[in-house]
Design a protein around this nucleic acid. Structure first.
Length: 229
DNA sequence: AGTGGGCCCTGTGCGC
DNA sequence: TGCGCACAGGGCCCAC
């Protein structure tokens, strides 16, 4: 999740993948210089700085037209930043589109599919978890096992989770701040993420932590029924 | 095709 | 207080 795309003069685009601890900072006074990995200096003397404690973040200049190109040439081999999937908040992200995606990847665990940036761009671990809780779908369900009504709920839940995150300025669990250095408020509104043992906001059953796709995962064992494996 | 582990890095929080 | 371990808004590569 968390790609930032700058359209540049001349048809190129600067793509930034923030990964775990990347931050773009502009007009922030108290920047910890130890973690600044690069900066863009402007003619007016201001600077956009890229701070990234864990050094996982990446930047690349790509052909902007390549970013727009849908479906064609989206090979697993090519660099991720030039093969991003559908934008979940764009018009093209419809229930029919999601159904078609699931039709192409029926055997993958639904949470793994949500986190696949070549399929859908920009859903991170927190938002996948929150969306699946909202849609009442277990993270390990095979994508192809979802019924039509479940796909509709998931479609709505993805947009709900992402819009909420944007409206609240992001989730500042420990590192994240926006370009002005301000923390977000999404972390206060987590329904299940990071809440193992606490009651489900919907039914009261204790939230369970598991690992899916190598990432910490939270779900309600009553609202999100486990598939038979 | 899909999954699981290691790895890339640095920092924090917890149990002992 | 100090140490060691697990874990963290992500993704790549490899073996199975």
């Amino acid at each position: 999740g968390k790609f930032v795309v700058f359209d540049l003069d001349g048809g190129d685009a600067l793509v930034v993948s923030l990964r775990m601890t990347g931050k773009l900072l502009y007009g922030v006074d108290d920047v910890d210089e130890r973690h600044v990995r690069g900066q863009i200096l402007f003619d007016d003397g201001t600077a956009l700085r890229f701070s990234d404690t864990r050094k996982f973040g990446r930047m690349a200049i790509v052909d902007a037209a390549a970013l727009e190109r849908r479906t064609a040439l989206r090979r697993p081999k090519m660099p991720l930043h030039s093969s991003l999937g559908q934008e979940p908040l764009a018009r093209g992200f419809t229930v029919a589109w999601l159904r078609a995606l699931i039709g192409r990847r029926p055997r993958v665990a639904i949470k793994v599919l949500l986190l696949d940036q070549r399929a859908i761009a920009g859903i991170g671990n927190i938002y996948a978890i929150e969306a699946l809780w909202r849609a009442r779908i277990h993270p390990l369900r095979r994508a192809g096992s979802l019924r039509a009504d479940e796909i509709e709920r998931l479609h709505e839940a993805i947009r709900w989770a992402l819009r909420k995150g944007i409206r609240l300025g992001g989730a500042s669990r420990r590192d994240y701040v926006d370009a002005r250095g301000n923390e977000g408020r999404m972390q206060r509104e987590f329904q299940v993420y990071g809440r193992a043992g606490e009651p489900c906001p919907r039914c009261g059953r204790p939230i369970v932590r598991t690992v899916v796709g190598g990432r910490g995962t939270f779900h309600c064992p009553r609202c999100q029924r486990a598939p038979r494996l």
